[in-house]
């Protein structure tokens, strides 16, 4: 009996201390968001005041269209998540299930491409989208559809690679049975595979959503108009500006932006864990 308690107490000790480590910065953000001073209140660990000034600023100041930014982020990250998973899973399915010449080369090429330090390619992407803007202003530089296209292209490599791992872990018996029934590869994909892999696809979509939501280097170059910006760009402006360090609104905005993601994350936790490991356990 005592031995068990001992064993459990070290478990709790580790759990508690690392939980504190995980929570500490988050706690500070929460207090800062309720402080009115605008600085990152980090010296006192007990909140001195509870002010909603920062939150009000986000919703009442016409110069800070926070809700519009939130909507933009949701639309862009959401579209990237859905589209890249559809397109990516098709490719992953083909890599995993179809036999064709050059399959190995293809997957190796894909792996190589995503290892290229893409940050330098920004210049080239910028020039391409600038030129697209000249003849199709709706999808070029400065537009959300344009950024969406760039994100989709960029997400392709990682997503196909990740999805392929998942697809491999799904038993092939079912779609082989469908094949015997005379279904074509395309039919097998849509009717058998997609419903079967839905939870896994949802996980990849979520990861893709979070990744896009976080992106700000391309976004701040591409989405210049105030009304077009995403949350990451808008929030970075509070503390990344040349002349200002407004931690208060930044903290408030970050918290509001994180809540939905954290909720989705926590509620899908089970799938995420199985999804993350599926790619590896297969081996």
């Amino acid at each position: 009996m005592k031995k068990w308690l001992m064993q459990d107490s070290w478990r709790h000790l580790i759990g508690i201390s690392i939980s504190l480590f995980a929570l500490f910065p988050l706690y500070l953000v929460v207090i800062s968001s309720f402080a009115s001073s605008g600085s990152l209140q980090l010296t006192s660990f007990v909140p001195k005041e509870i002010s909603f000034k920062n939150y009000q600023l986000l919703f009442n100041n016409p110069a800070i269209p926070y809700l519009t930014w939130a909507k933009n982020s949701l639309v862009i990250a959401g579209s990237v998540a859905v589209l890249s998973v559809i397109i990516g899973s098709a490719s992953a399915f083909a890599f995993s299930r179809l036999a064709f010449k050059g399959r190995k080369t293809g997957i190796q090429l894909l792996l190589l491409v995503q290892m290229f330090p893409a940050i330098l390619a920004i210049s080239a992407v910028y020039v391409i989208m600038e030129r697209v803007y000249k003849f199709a202003p709706e999808i070029g530089l400065g537009t959300q559809p344009g950024l969406l296209l760039v994100y989709l292209g960029g997400a392709m490599g990682v997503n196909i690679w990740l999805l392929k791992g998942f697809v491999d872990s799904i038993p092939a018996e079912l779609d082989e049975a469908a094949k015997i029934d005379g279904a074509s590869a395309v039919q097998t994909f849509w009717l058998i595979f997609v419903p079967l892999a839905a939870p896994v696809l949802a996980v990849v979509a979520l990861l893709s959503f979070i990744g896009t939501f976080n992106e700000f280097i391309l976004a701040r170059l591409f989405l210049v108009d105030m009304e077009n910006r995403t949350i990451a760009v808008g929030l970075q402006q509070f503390i990344g500006g040349q002349y200002s360090q407004n931690w208060g609104p930044f903290a408030a905005g970050s918290i509001l932006a994180s809540i939905p993601i954290v909720i989705i994350f926590l509620s899908l936790q089970k799938y995420i864990v199985s999804g993350l490991t599926a790619g590896s356990v297969k081996g």
């Binding site: 920004i122 210049s123 020039v127 030129r131 803007y133 701040r220 170059l221 990344g240 040349q242």
Partner: peptide, 19 residues
């Protein structure tokens, strides 16, 4: 209007006569 001075600089460095 750019979101920050750095973003303005980055965009100007990359801009060509197209935009």
């Amino acid at each position: 209007t750019f979101s920050s001075f750095d973003a303005l600089k980055e965009a100007f460095d990359k801009a060509t006569d197209a935009s």
